[in-house]
């Protein structure tokens, strides 16, 4: 009888540990779980591409994010050209950002806001970085720009 309860205890600990591990353990996404922009730039030399799934952006909101980081100035210029953007001064201020709405998975095509059909593209020249938020709802868009308004109010 005592042995049965020992097995029971071990079983419960294993189940709880498994559930926690399932929830917290970092997982590396496979390319087919990522967007087309990531898949394109993952194969481009001079650009470090990262895809993040369900990034918290405040409140209960989560968005998928593609981060593209040029490793040298030539790649940065090429990246900007791909996005149909003019060149930026790489010595730009750390807090200088440019953002616009683009068609989903097409950061070179500017579009007006349309829930589920557009991405928020943010250029960060100081770090030669492009951050693409794959927004699906208006709430997510508002949440991302909320900090901008908060910063203006200060």
């Amino acid at each position: 009888m005592k042995r049965r309860w020992l097995i029971t205890l071990l079983l419960c600990v294993a189940v709880l540990g498994g559930a926690l591990a399932f929830r917290l353990w970092p997982r590396t996404l496979s390319p087919d779980q990522c967007g087309t922009v990531y898949r394109h730039y993952a194969a481009v030399e001079g650009v470090e591409a990262t895809y993040i799934k369900d990034k918290h952006i405040g409140g209960d909101e989560q968005v998928d994010v593609t981060l593209l980081q040029a490793t040298d100035s030539t790649s940065w210029v090429t990246l900007l050209r791909d996005l149909d953007m003019p060149d930026f001064d790489v010595e730009a201020d750390d807090d200088f950002f440019v953002h616009y709405l683009a068609a989903k998975e097409h950061p070179d095509q500017r579009v007006p806001f349309s829930p589920g059909l557009c991405d928020l593209v943010v250029l960060w020249p100081a770090e030669s970085t492009v951050c693409i938020f794959h927004i699906a709802t208006e709430v997510q868009y508002d949440r991302l720009l909320k900090n901008q308004f908060d910063n203006l109010e200060q």
Partner: peptide, 10 residues
């Protein structure tokens, strides 16, 4: 348990 930021990334 909430999923930590960046659990699923490449």
């Amino acid at each position: 348990t909430s999923v930590p930021d960046g659990r699923d990334m490449t």
